[in-house]
C-alpha cells in the first residue's frame, strides 16, 4: 500500500497528528529529564579538578548542541518551504526559531556561569562561546525579519532566504572565529575537549541531550499548532473544530 506522505503536509491533518504527538513527547522528555538529573547529580562523582561546578555541563552541552542543530533544522524546513511552496514547512521553520534562540541563550548563560568559577571571568572570548553569540544574533535576525513583515507568505520566504544565507555562513563564521581566537592571545584556556569524562558523567549528559531533543520536539510541535491556527483562522476546518470545542 502506498504511504501517502502528503496526507500530513496539509495543515489540517498535520494539526490533528501533532495534537496526538505532543503529549507523547512531553511524557518522554519529562521521564528522560528526571533520569538524567538523577544520574547527573547523584550517580556522577565529583570531578577531581572542577569539584561540583562541572555539573553545569548537563545543561550547557545539550543546550549548545541543540542550538546549532535546531538552526540547521530550521534552515532545512525553510529551504523546503521556499522550494516547494509548502506553507506548513515554513510554519515549522517559524516555530523552531524561538526554541533555538532560547537554547542559544541558555548555552551562553550556563557557559558564563560555568566560566566564572573555572576561568575567573563571566565572559571569555573563547572561539565557541563567540560563535554561539553570533548564532544568537542570527536567530534574532531571523525572528525580527519575520516579525517586521506583515504578509505571512512574504515573511516565510524572506525568513527562508536569511536562514539559508545564515546556514551557509555558520561554518565560515566558526572557522574565522577559531582562527581569530588562536591568532590573538594564543589558544586561551579553552575547554577544547570535554575533560576525560567518567562514564556516568557521559551517560548523564547523553540522557540530558535526549531529554532536550524530546522537549524541543514537543515545544516546537505545540508552537507549530498555534501558528497553524493563527494562519488558518479563516478556514472552515478551524471554525468547525472550534464548534466542536476541540481546538
Amino acid at each position: 500500500m502506498a504511504i501517502n506522505w502528503f496526507k500530513y503536509s496539509s495543515p489540517a491533518s498535520f494539526y490533528l497528528l501533532a495534537g496526538k504527538m505532543v503529549p507523547v513527547f512531553v511524557f518522554i522528555s519529562v521521564m528522560l529529564l528526571i533520569v538524567g538529573l538523577y544520574v547527573g547529580f547523584f550517580v556522577a562523582p565529583t570531578d577531581f579538578q572542577q569539584g561540583e561546578a562541572y555539573r553545569i555541563i548537563f545543561i550547557h552541552v545539550p543546550a549548545a548542541w541543540m542550538s546549532m542543530f535546531l538552526y540547521v533544522v530550521m534552515a532545512f524546513w525553510a529551504g523546503i518551504g521556499l522550494a516547494f511552496n509548502t506553507r506548513l514547512s515554513s510554519m515549522f521553520a517559524t516555530a523552531i526559531a524561538p526554541t533555538g534562540a532560547m537554547f542559544t541563550f541558555i548555552a551562553l548563560w550556563t557557559g558564563a556561569l560555568w566560566g566564572k568559577p573555572m576561568w575567573g571571568t563571566w565572559w571569555v572570548w573563547d572561539a565557541r562561546l563567540t560563535s554561539e553569540l553570533i548564532l544568537f544574533f542570527l536567530y534574532i535576525g531571523f525572528m525580527s525579519l519575520q516579525a517586521a513583515i506583515d504578509d505571512p507568505r512574504r515573511a516565510d520566504k524572506a525568513g527562508a532566504i536569511i536562514a539559508l544565507v545564515g546556514v551557509i555562513n555558520i561554518p565560515i563564521i566558526y572557522f574565522s572565529v577559531q582562527w581569530w581566537n588562536t591568532l590573538h592571545q594564543g589558544a586561551s584556556v579553552s575547554l577544547n575537549q570535554a575533560p576525560a569524562m567518567a562514564t556516568t558523567m557521559l551517560t548523564g549528559m547523553l540522557i540530558m541531550v535526549l531529554a532536550s531533543w524530546m522537549y524541543s520536539i514537543a515545544v516546537i510541535l505545540k508552537r507549530a499548532r498555534v501558528i497553524i491556527l493563527e494562519r488558518e483562522s479563516h478556514t472552515a476546518w478551524v471554525a468547525e473544530l472550534h464548534k466542536k470545542g476541540a481546538i
Binding site: A53, I59, W109, T110, L113, K116, Y215
Partner: peptide, 27 residues
C-alpha cells in the same frame, strides 16, 4: 555543591525559568 552552589543552581534555575516561560508564552 562544594562552594559552587551559586553557579550550578544559578544556571539550572535560569534554564527552567526559560523553559517554563516558553511554555507559558505558547499557551
Amino acid at each position: 555543591m562544594g562552594g559552587y552552589g551559586l553557579y550550578v543552581w544559578g544556571s539550572y534555575v535560569v534554564t527552567f525559568m526559560c523553559i517554563a516561560g516558553e511554555i507559558l508564552l505558547i499557551s
